[in-house]
């Protein structure tokens, strides 16, 4: 039983890596604004990169 499971997992991995896929890379996903004064808004640009080998689509951004 354990053996079959391992084999299945192994095949799944091989299958996944043989297709081209996008890969989102964000080196700094956390940002500290430090101390800010009371103003209306603050703004930050997160640098992103597609480290994969097919097009990366940003489907949506959900703030909390």
């Amino acid at each position: 039983m354990a053996k079959t499971l391992l084999t299945t997992v192994f095949f799944l991995c091989v299958a996944a890596s043989s297709y081209a896929s996008p890969s989102l890379r964000i080196d700094k996903p956390q940002h500290d604004f430090g101390t800010v004064t009371q103003e209306d808004k603050v703004e930050h640009f997160f640098e992103i990169e597609n480290a994969g080998d097919s097009d990366l689509v940003i489907e949506k951004l959900v703030p909390s």
């Binding site: 996008p22 890969s23 964000i26 800010v36 009371q38 930050h44 489907e59 951004l61």
Partner: peptide, 25 residues
């Protein structure tokens, strides 16, 4: 504050961006 980024990246369809700050008058 956090923002969830939804993409077609099969390994990580969702990534969290977070920001913090201290607001003073």
């Amino acid at each position: 504050k956090t923002v969830q980024v939804h993409t077609n990246d099969p390994q990580r369809p969702q990534t969290i961006l977070s920001m913090k700050m201290k607001i003073k008058d």
